[in-house]
Design a protein around this nucleic acid. Structure first.
Length: 584
RNA sequence: CGGGGUAUGGCUCAGUUUGGCUAGAGCGCGUCGUUCGGGACGACGAGGCCGCAGGUUCGAAUCCUGUUACCCCGACCA
C-alpha cells in the first residue's frame, strides 16, 4: 500500500472533545470517523487492525471446535418474547416495526437467535456438546457512549454459544474457553489482561468472568487481594464486614438531633464513631415506585448491583417528598414504615450499639442493637468492598482496588434460554432435558482501542505486530531524488515478494518531520528510513516503533534483517501465550 | 433520565458581554518557487448565507423564543 493513496487524513491537533489518549490518537491518525453519538465508521487503517483481531479470534474459536455462523441483526420480537427479554430488557434494546406492523428488534446479543438456530437440529444427546459463534455487528442504545471506540452503540462483537448435556460438561468447556480467551488477548499483544469474577446481570446464570485490561481510564472497578488470587468486579465482590472491636450494649434511646440529616452530621453531633452508625440509602422499584431501603454501616457505600439482584427487579435512587412514608435524613431500621422493603447489610451485624434514624423529623436512636431490637433481623450483603477490606477468599485484610476495561466475558448461562424457548433433547434413556448453555463474548473494536490505550506514546499507537495494520513502514525521505526513490521502490517490491505487509510512503515534497509524525500515528512496528544520507553508506536505517531497535543495515541485507526482526517480534508474542488455569 | 457545557471553513479557535462596513487567525487544502532527518518559508488562491426555525431591529454570528445535535459529570449498561 502506498501512503499517498491511503484513505483518511492524519492531523496534528488534538480534537477538542477527546478525553482519553486512544480516542485522540485514533482520530488524529485517520483510523475512524464519528458518524453520530456512539457511532463510528472504520477507515482502512483500523479496518486492517480489526480484521487481524477477528482472524486471531476465529483461529482460537475454531481450535476449540467452534463453528462459525451468522445471525441476523434484525430479529422478530416474537423470539424475544419467548425468552421474556422483550419486556425485561430496558431501552438499550431498539424496538421497531416494519411496513406490516410486525414488531422487530435490533439484536444487542444473540442468545435467542442461537437457540432458535439449533433447537431442531440438536434434539438428541448424540449431537452434544457443540459451540457456535459469529463475528458481527450489534446495536445497543447505550445511555451514554463515551471515550471513542471504548463505549459505543454500534460495534463488532464475537459472540459464542455452547450447548451441553450436563453442568460438568459445561464447566469443562468453560475452562477450555477461559484458556482460549487468554491466548486471544496474548496473541493480540495484551497478555496483561486478567480475569475477574463478575456479576452475571441480566444474562442470567451463575458463574461468569470478565477479562479486564487494567488501566486508570477503565470504567470498571476491580477488587484484588494482595495475598491470594482473589479478583472480582466491584459489582460482584462479596463484602465481609470488619466488626468494630469497641462498644458495649446500651439501652435504646430516642434523642433529639436537629438538622442532622447526614451521617457525618449525626456522628459529629452525638460524638459517635461512624463505624457504630447506620446509614440509610433509599431506592424505588422502577415498576411501581415501592421504596427499597438499604441500611449499611456509616462508613460503607451501597453496592447497587448486589441490591438489585436481591430485590429481583430494576430499582433507581428514590426521591422522597414530605408526603411519603419515609422521613428523609432520619430513616432508621427500627419502627420503619411497613410499606418500605428493607435490606440490612452484613456490615451492621454484631454491632452492640448503633446510632440510627428514628423515622421522625429531628430524632435519632442511640443504643440500637439490631439483633435485640428487631424481630427476625436478617443480614444481607449489599455494601461495597473497600480498599483494605477483608478478602472474602483468604480472609486477610489485603484488598486493593484498581480500574479496568472489560474486553471480554464468559458466562455459564444454564438453562435460562433453552427452558424459556422450549429447546429440549432426548438422552440415552429416552428422557427429555433442557440443554445447558454457556456464552462467550469479545468486543472487537473495544479491543483495538484498548490495545491502543495500553500501547502508545505521545506520538501515537505502538501496535503489536500481530494486529498492526502493516508490518513494515517505508519512509522515503527524498522521493524527489531519483536514486533514493528507486532504492525505496525496490525495497518495497522485495518486501512484498517476501510476503511482508508494507506501507510505503513515497510522497514527494513531504518533509521528514511530517513523514515521521505520520508514521508514528500509524504505529507500524518496523520502520525503514530510505534517504540520500543513508544511501551514501549503502544502508537503510531500520528502527522499531517502540524504539528498541535502531540500526544501519546494508541495502543488500535489508530484507533478511527485516524478516528476522519480524520473526523475533512474533516469537516474543508467542512467548506470552501461556496456559492458564481458572482461579477463583 | 438529571446536572453542566458547546455549536463560526476539513481541524483548533477568536469575534457574542456592549447588535454596525465585505466574518477573522493558525493549521490543513490547491498552484508556483526556495527548502529538506522530527510537523519549513514566501507568493497567489479556493473554501463559511456563523447548528436549525421563528422573532425583535433600519441593521443580528451577537438580543429573544423554540428546536436539534454533540461533549463532560452522574444515573443506566447482555
Amino acid at each position: 500500500m502506498k501512503l499517498a493513496k491511503l484513505i483518511g487524513d492524519r492531523f496534528k491537533e488534538k480534537p477538542a472533545d477527546c478525553v482519553i489518549d486512544s480516542h485522540a490518537l485514533m482520530l488524529r491518525g485517520g483510523y475512524m470517523k464519528n458518524v453520530g453519538n456512539g457511532i463510528f465508521s472504520e477507515l482502512p487503517i483500523l479496518r486492517r487492525i480489526t480484521a487481524k483481531i477477528e482472524a486471531i479470534i476465529r483461529e482460537e474459536m475454531d481450535a476449540i471446535d467452534g463453528q462459525e455462523v451468522l445471525f441476523p441483526v434484525v430479529l422478530p420480537a416474537d423470539l424475544w418474547d419467548e425468552s421474556g427479554r422483550y419486556d425485561s430488557v430496558g431501552s438499550e434494546l431498539i424496538r421497531f416495526t416494519d411496513r406490516n406492523n410486525s414488531r422487530l428488534v435490533l439484536a444487542m446479543t444473540h442468545e435467542e437467535a442461537a437457540v432458535h438456530l439449533v433447537r431442531e437440529y440438536a434434539q438428541t444427546y448424540t449431537k452434544y456438546p457443540f459451540m457456535i459463534y459469529q463475528i458481527q455487528r450489534k446495536f445497543r442504545d447505550e445511555a451514554r457512549p463515551r471515550a471513542g471506540m471504548l463505549r459505543v452503540r454500534e460495534f463488532t462483537m464475537k459472540d459464542a454459544y455452547s450447548f451441553h448435556t450436563s453442568q460438568e460438561d459445561l464447566e469443562k468447556y468453560y475452562a477450555i474457553c477461559y484458556d482460549a480467551y487468554y491466548r486471544i488477548f496474548a496473541r493480540a499483544g495484551i497478555p496483561e489482561v486478567v480475569t475477574v469474577a463478575s456479576d452475571s446481570g441480566m444474562m442470567g446464570g451463575n458463574i461468569s468472568h470478565e477479562y479486564m485490561l487494567l488501566t486508570p481510564i477503565g470504567e470498571d472497578v476491580i477488587v484484588f487481594c494482595e495475598e491470594c488470587d482473589y479478583r472480582a468486579n466491584m459489582e460482584a465482590a462479596e463484602n465481609i464486614a470488619d466488626p468494630p472491636s469497641t462498644g458495649e450494649e446500651q439501652e435504646l434511646q430516642c434523642i433529639e438531633t436537629p438538622d442532622c440529616k447526614t451521617i457525618d452530621a449525626v456522628c459529629t453531633f452525638l460524638n459517635a464513631d461512624i463505624k457504630s452508625s447506620c446509614k440509610a440509602v433509599v431506592y424505588q422499584k422502577n415498576r411501581d415506585d415501592t421504596f427499597v431501603v438499604a441500611f449499611v454501616r456509616g462508613d460503607y457505600e451501597v453496592n447497587e448491583t448486589k441490591l438489585r439482584n436481591l430485590v429481583g427487579e430494576e430499582i433507581h435512587p428514590a426521591e422522597i417528598t414530605e408526603t411519603d412514608c419515609l422521613v428523609a435524613g432520619y430513616i432508621g431500621p427500627y419502627q420503619i414504615a411497613k410499606e418500605a422493603e428493607v435490606y440490612i447489610d452484613i456490615t451492621l451485624k454484631g454491632i452492640p450499639s448503633l446510632v440510627a434514624g428514628a423515622n421522625q423529623e429531628g430524632f435519632h436512636y442511640v443504643g440500637l442493637n439490631l439483633e435485640r431490637d428487631l424481630e427476625n433481623a436478617t443480614f444481607v450483603d449489599i455494601s461495597k468492598i473497600q480498599e483494605g477490606s477483608i478478602c472474602p477468599c483468604c480472609g486477610k485484610k489485603a484488598i486493593t482496588i484498581k480500574r479496568g476495561i472489560e474486553v471480554g466475558n464468559i458466562f455459564q448461562l444454564g438453562t435460562k434460554y433453552t427452558k424459556s424457548m422450549g429447546m429440549k433433547y432426548t438422552d440415552e434413556k429416552g428422557e427429555q432435558h433442557y440443554p445447558i448453555m454457556g456464552c462467550y463474548g469479545i468486543g472487537v473494536g473495544r479491543m483495538a482501542a484498548s490495545i491502543c490505550e495500553a500501547h502508545h506514546d505521545d506520538y501515537g499507537p505502538v501496535w503489536p505486530i500481530s494486529i498492526a495494520p502493516w508490518e513494515v513502514h517505508i519512509c522515503c525521505l527524498r522521493a524527489d531524488d531519483e536514486d533514493t526513490k528507486a532504492a525505496a521502490g525496490k525495497l518495497y517490491e522485495e518486501l512484498q515478494d517476501a510476503g511482508i505487509e508494507v506501507l510505503y510512503d513515497d510522497r514527494e515534497g513531504v518533509r521528514p518531520g511530517a513523514m515521521f509524525s505520520d508514521a508514528d500515528l500509524i504505529g507500524v512496528p518496523i520502520r525503514v528510513i530510505v534517504s540520500p544520507r543513508n544511501l551514501k553508506e549503502s544502508c537503510f536505517e531500520i528502527t522499531t516503533r517502540d524504539k528498541t531497535v535502531r540500526e544501519m543495515v546494508p541495502v543488500g541485507e535489508a530484507v533478511t534483517f527485516i524478516q528476522k526482526l519480524k520473526e523475533e517480534m512474533y516469537q516474543k508474542i508467542r512467548e506470552t501465550v501461556k496456559e492458564r488455569r481458572i482461579c477463583i
